[in-house]
Design a protein around this nucleic acid. Structure first.
Lengths: 147, 147
DNA sequence: TTCTTTATTAGTAATCATTATTATTATTAA
DNA sequence: TTAATAATAATAATGATTACTAATAAAGAA
């Protein structure tokens, strides 16, 4: 079966454009449901399935990334150039970590394994400023190893 | 509400021990369902819920890790010391990548952000040996950015 | 512009991994 | 041995995501 992706005959729809626009101007990493609720306000008969389908298509086209931090739902990011993330184990808030991407890493693994390495994902876990203070007060050390 | 975890009053059950034993002797990264089906053969009235509950408890106790590669289900790993992973974008097979853990990375991010960094996860994406050959033959370049 | 093709949509139902519930059983400490 | 309660098996529920379907709309051809 020849897929739409292989034929590359995508059409430009208002819905898909709005979803991409929203992701581009966002500096957060929204979920499909958040995007749906946001756009639903203006696009009154938008469907959640449409949001999911277009997120998948935009990802296929390489215009966005799908991020999974083991929280049970995906997040999406239009900043399609290598960057790293931090997720707070307590409040689950996600931050971009602006250390330069380690290009040499991929080559190292290529030499080790012989595999074709296309990319890598690096996620830091810990406590953000706010939660760090809270935990110090409560004298707790809850370490969450989700993902 | 005071949780079982906070009280730290876990009991030793055959089921939990078997699950941990299986994970320790495995060098793969099994899913909850795979563990369930494997143990069900000898433990005839084992319940899938029991597997999930114990995986959560073992994770709380720091005896195993939960890994999420954006494939829609979690994988579990009893090798609880920092190591990295590779996942083949085509066959979804997971490999341990044995490059030494970059301890300095966490410190770098601590200095940058002021956050408390507890750990990081690094996952490489690409094509394994087998899939690399197949793709070369078919002249395809399907890049899967899951996670 | 009008026509044709078919990708896309809205709406809804289904799927599937995971979690909650509940009555019963088994572990542990006194 | 016994009392307290953590854990179990079985099952129902949840929630994110996907599949289905008839109607709509984008895009190229006439």
């Amino acid at each position: 079966m020849i897929t739409n992706k292989e034929k590359d005959t995508y059409r430009n729809t208002k819905q898909r454009q709005k979803i991409l626009d929203l992701l581009i101007k966002c500096d957060s990493h929204p979920t499909a449901d958040w995007i749906y609720r946001k756009l639903k306000k203006k696009f009154r008969n938008l469907s959640l399935g449409t949001v999911y389908r277009n997120l998948r298509i935009l990802k296929e086209k390489g215009q966005i990334w799908e991020l999974d931090f083991g929280t049970g739902f995906s997040r999406f990011d239009a900043m399609v150039h290598s960057h790293y993330h931090f997720i707070c184990s307590t409040c689950q808030k996600i931050y971009d970590i602006k250390i330069p991407p380690m290009k040499g890493l991929d080559d190292k693994v290529i030499q080790m394994t012989g595999f074709r390495i296309l990319s890598h994902r690096l996620v830091f876990f810990g406590l953000c400023d706010v939660c760090k203070l809270k935990k110090t007060k409560n004298n707790k050390n809850v370490i969450n190893h989700a993902t």
